[in-house]
């Protein structure tokens, strides 16, 4: 088989790295994926520098000339199945079981991979919110309030981010909604301790994994990526808390009880 055009290899490798970052994987995984794509398809030396918001890739083709490309990454949602598929595609390439055409078709099909249907996602969100409430010391009544609140919360944030609303405002709205819904349920006598239900349902938004991955990136030596992820986690937490704090304040002002 004829060697693929170096420009095409560069584009494909940067597509792969960008896809890895969009799926919320570690930064070094994006860099290693791009390098593995280049070395398997072009044979020559490649260098990749990735941060959560962009990829820079340079590549020395078989003709000895260097080429480079910059790709911007916007919008990150964690998608573990896509990470797993890119991982196995990269292994296939590295082991020589796939060629350029198969790799580029593979990347296309991973980008089009359908997610779980809406009903399954809703059930997952409800289960997560309900059982986290129980795990963090809530009663059954709190969990039964947190579950529907969590389901609506996940649908709401998904819709808002599809409309192009920034994560910060999505989180403000989500935090405010979770607090108001749980407090209202408490007032109506459904939740024994609305605070627990708030924590359980807000688990769907809080950046716990993000802050842990920020520290993991920093430990791995990706200092810029680590600090960037830390800032991302910090801003998400700030958004949720501004929404929640405002909702608690409104509740107090409305004279519906101290919360």
């Amino acid at each position: 088989m004829a060697d693929p055009d170096p420009e095409d290899v560069l584009l494909l490798a940067s597509d792969a790295a960008r896809l890895v970052l969009r799926c919320g994987a570690e930064t070094y995984r994006a860099e290693e994926t791009a390098r593995a794509f280049c070395s398997s398809l072009g044979g020559a030396e490649a260098e990749c520098y990735a941060t959560p918001t962009g990829v820079v890739l340079s590549f020395f083709g078989p003709d000895g000339r260097s080429r480079s490309i910059v790709r911007r990454v916007r919008g990150r949602t964690m998608n573990l199945e896509r990470i797993a598929r890119i991982h196995s595609l990269t292994r296939d390439l590295y082991a020589g079981r796939a060629d350029f055409r198969q790799a580029s078709e593979g990347i296309d099909s991973i980008e089009r991979l359908p997610g779980y249907p809406g009903a399954v996602t809703l059930a997952g969100a409800a289960a997560a919110a309900g059982f986290f409430t129980l795990l963090y010391g809530g009663s059954w009544s709190d969990a039964l309030v947190a579950a529907p609140v969590g389901a609506i919360l996940s649908r709401m944030t998904r819709t808002l981010s599809r409309q192009g609303i920034s994560d910060f405002f999505t989180n403000i709205a989500g935090g405010a909604f979770a607090v108001l819904a749980c407090l209202a349920a408490g007032l109506a006598g459904f939740a024994a301790s609305p605070d627990r239900a708030v924590i359980g349902s807000i688990m769907l938004l809080v950046p716990g994994v993000a802050i842990t991955n920020a520290i993991r990136d920093t430990i791995a030596g990706d200092l810029v990526a680590g600090v960037a992820r830390g800032a991302d986690a910090f801003i998400s937490a700030a958004g949720i808390s501004i929404g929640a704090g405002a909702a608690f304040g409104l509740w107090r002002l409305a004279g519906l009880g101290a919360a």
């Binding site: 994987a25 570690e26 995984r29 964690m78 573990l80 990470i83 797993a84 991982h87 196995s88 986290f132 795990l135 963090y136 935090g175 924590i199 807000i202 688990m203 809080v206 950046p207 716990g208 994994v209 802050i211 842990t212 991955n213 986690a233 910090f234 998400s236 937490a237 700030a238 949720i240 808390s241 501004i242 929640a244 704090g245």
Partner: peptide, 25 residues
């Protein structure tokens, strides 16, 4: 499969998400 898949899910109950939220609150 990549170990990342299992790690990310299994640390979910431990992860200090509510701590981040409470700090900012």
């Amino acid at each position: 499969r990549p170990a990342f898949l299992y790690m990310v899910c299994a640390i979910l109950p431990l992860v200090p998400g509510s701590g981040m939220y409470n700090t900012m609150l």
